Structures are given as C-alpha cells and as structure tokens.
Amino acid sequence: MSSLLMPLMRRLDPETAHDFALRGLRWGFAGVDRTPDDPILAVQALGRTLRNPVGLAAGFDKNAVAVNALGRLGFGFVEAGTVTPRPQSGNPRPRLFRLPEDKAVINRMGFNNGGIDAYLANLRKVDRTQVALGANVGINKEGADPERDYPALVSAVSPFADYVTVNISSPNTPGLRDLQGEERLSAILGAIVTDKPVFVKIAPDLAQEGLEAVIGVCLARGVSGLIVSNTTIARPETLRGAAKTETGGLSGAPLFAPSTAMLAQAYKLAGSKLTLIGVGGIFLAEDALAKILAGASLVQVYTGFAYQGPPMIPKLKDGLAQLLRARGFKSVQDAVGAGL
C-alpha cells in the first residue's frame, strides 16, 4: 500500500504530504515488516539489545503519535520530537521544501509541536518491547531558559524513553546553536539528572575547535553520546533544486559528505568513550556502512525515508547485512570506526 501511495504523496505540498503520512501510519496503511532481522545487524546500544542499527531521526514524528506504527516498519529505534515545554506553531508556512534533483529537503519548521503534556501522553502509549524509543527535547522560541527547560524536559520524558537527546543544533530557533558553546552546554548538561542515556545533537557547521569543545564537555558531564549531525545552513554550489535559496536547514544527499566527515572527526577525538549516531544523507546500504566505518554505532534516516517511503527500511537492512559479510565483519560493532 505504501509503495502505491508514494507517487501520489509527492504531488502534494511537502508538509501536507507529511501530515498524511503520519495519519496513514496511524491507520495502518504502511503495513508491517514481519521478516526477522539478520543476526549480524544486532547491536548492544541505548541500554538494550537492538535488532538492527537503523533508526528514524527526530523531526518526522514530532509529537510521538506514530511510534508504534513506525516500529512495525522494521526500525531498530525511533526518535520522536523535538518537543518543547509549551506548544508552539512554529514558523509560517510554507516552511518545508523538496529539492528532488538533489535528493534533499530544506526546512524551517521551527519546533512546531503540541508541547510536553501532549507528548508525554503519547509516549505512555508506546510499546517499547517492539522498538527502542528516543525522546528529543528542545526549547521554545520565546520565554525559554535553557538551563531550566532542558533538565525539566529530560526529567519528564526519562521514565518513558530508552534515551534522551538534547537538541541544541536546529538552525530554525534563534540563538539555539549558541548553546553549543562550552560554558552554556556545560551548565545545561550539568543540571540534567536522569538514569537514561543522554545524547547531544550537534550541527555539521561546527568548526574543529567547536567540536573539540563539545566533546570535552560531553565527556566531563557523563553524556552517553553524540548525534552527528543536524541539518546544515550551508548551500553547496552543486544544488540544482528551485528551492535551493530558501532559508532553513538543508538535509539529504548534500549533507552526507560533511556530516560523515564530522562523524569521523568525532570518533577520532572520542573513540569508544562516546556512542555516535550517524545521520545525514543516508539513502542506500552503502551510505549506512560508510557512517559505521566512520565511527557510528547506530545510524538514522530521515530525508531518504521521506523520499523512498517504508520499502526503504528492509532494503537498507538487507543490503547492510550483505555488505558487512562481504567485508568480513561478523557484527556491526566490528565495523565501527574500521574505515579510519
């Protein structure tokens, strides 16, 4: 059913299509992947055994309304959010743009979500025996106090999630990326109290010294890992899509090279001290393997999933299993950082 609907969805406005996709998932139109995962894909991460290392990045299911349905598509883990303390509508529409020629998307959504109370009500309905759940937290555009809001959000979602992501890298909330600075980040992370793994999601536009500072703070504050990376504000000269000049964060294929390069840098700096989740431009199994070889223990998809739909997931997993065996690896863990 999902394969038949994808061409029709692409004729709709991107945000309208996204809303329909979430409804379709909740109504069961996307189907179920009942094929057992290849044992070579099993990963020990996020405090549990995952059946595979392929996750869905935050931003697709902001309010955690379709996590169970997404889990049935074959993901090893799903990250829901970004959620803020209070509901907010985000930036004016249009705010989501396809660049099909570039296999890319530009968004300036602005953390549109229903707020923490509605989000928690949905988290309570998630069956975490079927899929690991990540909760991605952020701050409101107005009236925010990061040192107050992030710890409060983490405490609120921790009982219902397997891990929590502190999002300090969206380009669509004014001043948010400034929180990647050493002093502010240390204050935020130092105030967080939880027994769940905490990840920090960083921007691909960080300079080398900025990345070194973030990793230093994360290690000092006992953070579990990094998600590398969020969308980029850069605009490669190779972009061809008509929407290439739109303001917002660029994701998809053009993000693959810079995000993978930053991932490799992070692995060289932190090694096994931090668990790295690689995201940015994954469309094929070869892309996922490249992230793992660069240091990622887990990978996430978003734009590739938006373009290809649910059939992407089994293809990605099957291809990754074949590539791992062809390279002589006995597990995903054996391949982590092996390309460096």
Rank of each mutant, 00 (worst) to 15 (best):
L276T: 12
T49K: 14
G47W: 07
P7N: 08
A306Y: 14
F97V: 05
N172Q: 09
P53H: 12
A296F: 04
I139R: 08
E212N: 04
L12K: 03
P100T: 07
A285G: 14
A242I: 10
L255K: 08
K141R: 14
I188P: 06
G181L: 10
G47M: 10
I277L: 09
P14R: 04
R23E: 14
A321D: 05
G47R: 07
T165K: 07
A253N: 05
N140Q: 04
N136I: 00
A261F: 05
L284P: 00
T303L: 06
G90V: 00
V332H: 09
D318F: 05
R184G: 00
E212H: 06
L226H: 02
G309A: 12
G134W: 08
A264T: 04
Q300G: 10
L263D: 10
N122V: 04
I282P: 03
E237A: 15
E142R: 13
G90R: 05
R177S: 07
F111Y: 14
G114V: 01
A45V: 13
G47V: 08
A296K: 03
R128N: 02
E182Y: 02
P151E: 04
P14E: 07
G55E: 11
I116L: 14
G90S: 08
D102R: 11
R124S: 11
T49W: 01
P254S: 06
S251A: 14
T173P: 03
L5S: 10
K196D: 06
N122A: 10
L99E: 03
L316F: 14
F329V: 12
A257P: 01
A17Y: 04
Q44L: 06
